[in-house]
Amino acid sequence: MSDYRKIFADGFWNNNVVLGQSLALCPLLAVTTSATNGLGLGLASLVVMVAANVLASLFNPLISRAVRIPVNILMIATLVTITDLLLNAWLHPLHKVLGLFIPLIVTNCAILGRVESFASRNAILPAAADGLAMGLGFTWVLVLMGGIRELFGAGTLFANASLLLGKHFAFLEMVIIPDYRGILLLILPPGGFLILGGMLSAKRLLEQHIAARKAAKNKLVTAVEGG
């Protein structure tokens, strides 16, 4: 159980795809003009991550080490192609918005990295948990960043969710600031860099604060035990 806690802690925070590894920045900055777009790309990436990890773990004993990387790349490309076709068939408006960034999931180093460093060396269940944790960690960063940019750029949250993700997501649509003109900079690419820098700084400051509190607590415990 402790291993699974570590897997999810790494995926969500410690080794987060964006905040910990600084990977997948191209789609992150390009797509997150709204929380809806971030959620759509995040869920698509999540499906590919979980499926790729499971298949890599399942077929690893059958694949020669000499050709493992090309086979894994081919497998990821196949999964991304299937995901792209399904999105085009069932969620065409979202497919049009995300455009090229769905096929570019193939080039997401985080997916190949997890397949190579974790899934190929572990059993199916831990591999699936790792894919799920990394996918969810990537998704929450996409949604948070898209939400911040959308909120201060347009005054809404999850705009057009029912159109892009389906009518069942209509409950997400919110107008936070009516008649809001917005800050155009946050919708444009420079706004993505500004928000990403702020999120990275906030993560580092929070980690330093937690580390300082732990150090103070340990010092107090040591002093009490020492009489």
Rank of each mutant, 00 (worst) to 15 (best):
L25K: 05
L29A: 01
V31E: 03
V31C: 08
T33I: 09
T33F: 09
G40Y: 01
L43A: 06
L43P: 00
L43Y: 00
L43C: 04
S45E: 01
L46N: 10
V48M: 04
M49Q: 15
V50Q: 03
N53P: 03
N53W: 06
V54G: 00
A56G: 03
S57M: 07
S57E: 04
L58N: 00
L58K: 09
N60F: 01
P61M: 09
I63L: 14
S64T: 11
A66V: 10
V67K: 10
V67M: 09
V67L: 09
P70V: 12
V71K: 05
M75G: 01
M75Y: 00
I76L: 03
A77G: 11
A77T: 04
A77I: 01
T78Y: 01
V80S: 06
T81A: 12
T81G: 03
I82F: 11
D84H: 14
L85W: 06
L85K: 12
L86T: 13
L86K: 05
L86R: 05
L87N: 05
L87E: 00
N88D: 12
A89H: 14
A89R: 15
A89M: 10
W90H: 12
W90E: 06
W90S: 07
H92E: 15
P93W: 04
L94S: 15
L94T: 09
L94V: 10
H95S: 15
K96V: 14
K96N: 13
K96C: 10
L98G: 05
L98P: 07
G99F: 14
F101S: 02
P103E: 13
P103I: 11
L104W: 12
I105N: 07
T107E: 02
N108R: 10
C109N: 13
I111F: 04
L112F: 14
G113Q: 08
G113H: 08
G113A: 08
R114M: 07
F118S: 12
A119P: 02
A119G: 06
R121H: 12
N122G: 02
L125K: 07
L125E: 04
P126D: 10
A127K: 04
A128Y: 13
A129R: 03
A129C: 15
L132T: 13
L132S: 14
M134W: 08
G135Y: 07
L136V: 14
W140Q: 02
W140F: 03
L142C: 13
L142D: 03
V143L: 06
M145R: 04
M145N: 03
G146H: 06
G147M: 10
R149Q: 01
E150P: 03
L151P: 09
L151A: 09
F152M: 11
F152T: 05
G153W: 10
G153C: 11
L157M: 09
L157K: 04
L157G: 02
F158G: 07
A159R: 14
A159F: 09
A159W: 06
A161D: 07
S162D: 15
S162Y: 03
S162A: 15
